[in-house]
Design a protein around this nucleic acid. Structure first.
Lengths: 89, 89
DNA sequence: ATTAATTTGTTCGTATGTATC
DNA sequence: TGATACATACGAACAAATTAA
């Protein structure tokens, strides 16, 4: 068994909370909880939902932004990136 | 009663303090004081608790890390390794 | 047009760990 | 032994743009 993205944060675990949240959000996206070009819950909402500080939530989001999974529209929200369309095959 | 890892360090004994501490920590882990994937007390805490220098504490921890009993997550803490599950007998 | 609420952006301070010198 | 660096987390506050009423 290994560390997987549950729905709860393990504060005392070896994996930092922001990495846990990043994994959780990624899993939820892949699961289809939020669709491409659709916003994920606001930072404030995620703070509530997972009981984390906003800085921690933002760090998790930044991870997924760096991975190209999310993109941010300032003052509008954070959205699920559309599937890569290389060459428009 | 036999010779075993007590809770106190014998500075005048034949066994070096860091080896004594390693034995103590190992005993406490096997006893279940700290569970798998859970952090053991911080280095600073162990320094206080056993009255040892930090270098000594770290040396003791390194022994158990080498034995696979502990693993360190930088900037996070030192954790008890999960039980090896070979073949899941 | 005003106002208020929402949402991301930014910064500061405090605390806790290990890492390093 | 002591000091500093680095990574992480929480809390709070404020700015700026957007949106809704």
């Amino acid at each position: 068994m290994e560390f997987g993205p549950d729905d709860q944060i393990d504060y005392d675990g070896p994996v930092t909370p922001y990495k846990q949240l990043a994994a959780i959000l990624k899993a939820r996206i892949l699961r289809g909880d939020w669709l491409p070009n659709r916003p994920i819950p606001s930072e404030a909402r995620l703070v509530q939902e997972y009981g984390l500080a906003r800085t921690t939530v933002r760090r998790a989001i930044q991870v997924l932004v760096d991975e190209g999974i999310l993109f941010v529209m300032p003052q509008r929200g954070t959205f699920v990136s559309p599937p890569s369309t290389p060459a428009q095959g």
